[in-house]
Simulated scan of single mutants.
Amino acid sequence: MRRHEYFVYILTNQNKTVLYVGMTNDLSRRLSEHTDKYNPEGFTAKYKCKFLLHWESYQYVRDAIAREKEIKKWRREKKEKLISENNPNWDFLNKEVVEN
């Protein structure tokens, strides 16, 4: 049986002034879509959110959806704390995901 994998992720813009929370089953593809402005009318294109700061992996889609909803409800300060726990310098992590 094939193991499924789902990702909850947080993106930002170049100046790190906007945070976007999303969920996908293919993080590398989804990052490319954000970079290529797959949806030019969408939030990430409008605010130029294409830089990965944080991601989490889940086996079950329902867990990933629940986590995405949970994080989306948080205030910015709590999201910043989550990012800083694993990425204290707020480095852009796109290359780590796309190269793997």
Results as ranks from 00 to 15, higher is better:
18 V>C: 10
78 K>V: 04
65 I>P: 02
16 K>Q: 11
20 Y>F: 13
15 N>M: 11
69 K>A: 01
83 I>W: 04
32 S>V: 10
76 R>H: 03
71 I>L: 14
59 Q>V: 04
11 L>D: 00
32 S>D: 11
44 T>Q: 12
99 E>C: 09
50 K>L: 04
66 A>P: 01
11 L>I: 07
40 P>D: 07
57 S>D: 02
55 W>K: 05
40 P>V: 09
55 W>E: 04
28 S>C: 05
9 Y>T: 00
68 E>Q: 10
47 Y>S: 03
11 L>Q: 07
66 A>G: 06
30 R>L: 06
11 L>A: 05
30 R>M: 08
39 N>C: 13
96 E>T: 06
10 I>N: 02
96 E>H: 09
16 K>P: 10
31 L>S: 08
14 Q>P: 11
19 L>Q: 00
5 E>V: 02
30 R>E: 15
58 Y>A: 02
55 W>A: 03
61 V>L: 12
86 N>K: 14
97 V>E: 15
87 N>R: 02
35 T>R: 15
25 N>D: 10
33 E>S: 05
56 E>F: 15
64 A>W: 06
51 F>G: 01
29 R>A: 03
39 N>K: 02
15 N>F: 06
84 S>Q: 08
77 E>S: 07
65 I>M: 11
9 Y>A: 10
77 E>N: 12
25 N>G: 08
42 G>H: 03
29 R>W: 13
56 E>W: 10
75 R>S: 11
85 E>A: 11
34 H>S: 04
17 T>A: 09
83 I>P: 04
